[in-house]
Design a protein around this nucleic acid. Sequence first.
DNA 1: CCCCCTAATGATAATAATTCTCATTATCAT
DNA 2: ATGATAATGAGAATTATTATCATTAGGGGG
Lengths: 165, 165
Amino acid sequence: MRCGNPWAHQRLVAEGLRITEARRIILNILSKTSKHLSAEDIYFLVRGINPSIGFATVYRTLDLLTRMGMVQKFDFGDGKARYELIEGSRKDAHHHHLVCTKCRKIVNYTDFVDEEKELIKKTEDALAKKHRFDIKSHIIHFYGLCETCRSEDKNHNPSLGKLSM
Amino acid sequence: MRCGNPWAHQRLVAEGLRITEARRIILNILSKTSKHLSAEDIYFLVRGINPSIGFATVYRTLDLLTRMGMVQKFDFGDGKARYELIEGSRKDAHHHHLVCTKCRKIVNYTDFVDEEKELIKKTEDALAKKHRFDIKSHIIHFYGLCETCRSEDKNHNPSLGKLSM
DNA sequence: CCCCCTAATGATAATAATTCTCATTATCAT
DNA sequence: ATGATAATGAGAATTATTATCATTAGGGGG
Ligand SMILES: [Mn+2]
Ligand SMILES: [Mn+2]
Ligand SMILES: [Zn+2]
Ligand SMILES: [Zn+2]
C-alpha cells in the first residue's frame, strides 16, 4: 500500500484506522494544494482520480481527519466549510488568513509571524492559566477588501450600497 | 417610538431604514447579553416578547445588522451561526474568544488586549500595505478544552476516544 | 390625526450543505 | 486465502438558512 504521505499514513495506523483508497487520495489532494477547498471541491478532484468514490466518504474522511487534528476546518463566511491540511504533512508552516469580504479571495500569510508567534504564545499561556483552558489551536482571520474590490468600490458607492431588504 | 438604544436607532435612521418592532426587540436582546446567541436562540427570546414575530424576520434582521456592521456573525464550529452586537451599542469593548471544543463553552476575553491590540494594529497595518488590503475587522479564536472537560478527559481516555467511523 | 407609499413582515416553500441509513465491499490481522 | 468488521456508495433525511409572495405597518406629507 504505497502512500504518498508517510506521516499521515502513520497517524492513521497508530489509531488503528485503515488506509483506504479514498483516504489516500484525499490526503494527497490536500497535501498538494495551498488553496482552501470545500468538500465539494475535493469531491470533484477525488472523482477525477477515482469516480467510484462517493460524496459521503469525502465528508466522512474530512471529518475524521479534522477530529484527528490533521486537517483544519474553516468557515470564511460563505455558506460552506473549507479544509486545509495542518503542518506536519505539508511542509509550510502554520499561517493566518486575510479574507476579502467581497470577492472571497483568501490570502495565506506567514509574514510577521515572528512577533505574532511570540505574542500568540504569550497570550495562549496567559489565557490557559487565567481561564484554566488547555489550548490546542487558534484561528486568526483578518477581513476586508482586496485591492481589486476596493478600487471597484470607489466608483459606484452610494453610501452603503444595497443595504435594504 | 421609544427605543432602548439611541445609537442603534440613529444608525438605522441614517440609512433610511425603518424602526420596526422586530428590530427594536432584537437589538434590545442583543444589547442585554454577552452570550453568543444563535438565530434560533434569538427567535425564542423574541417570541417571548412578541409571539407574532416570525423566524424569517429574525434571520433578515440579523443579516441586515451584520451587513451594517452593527452585529458580528460567528462560526464556532457547531453547525449554526452565532451573533453578537459590536461595540458602540454595548459598552464593553471588542474582544476575542476562547472555545471549548468539547462542551462548546465560549469565553469572551479582554485580558491582554493591551499588548494584543498593539500587535494586531501593527499586523493589520503591515498586512494592509503588503497585500494591498483594506482591513475592516478580525476574528481571533483559541480552541481547546475547558477545565471541566479537561479533567473529564483524564479519566477515561482510550488514546483518542471514539475516533473511528 | 388620516392617507398613502412602500419597506418590512409572516407563513411557508425552497435551497443547500451536511449527516444518516443500510446493504455491500475492501482492508488487514490471522 | 479467509474472516471479522471498518469503511464505503447511494441515496434518503436532516438542518440551517434563504427566497417567495400576499399582507401589514412605519413614517412623511397633508
Ligand atoms: Mn490557509
Ligand atoms: Mn463574544
Ligand atoms: Zn476582493
Ligand atoms: Zn468544555
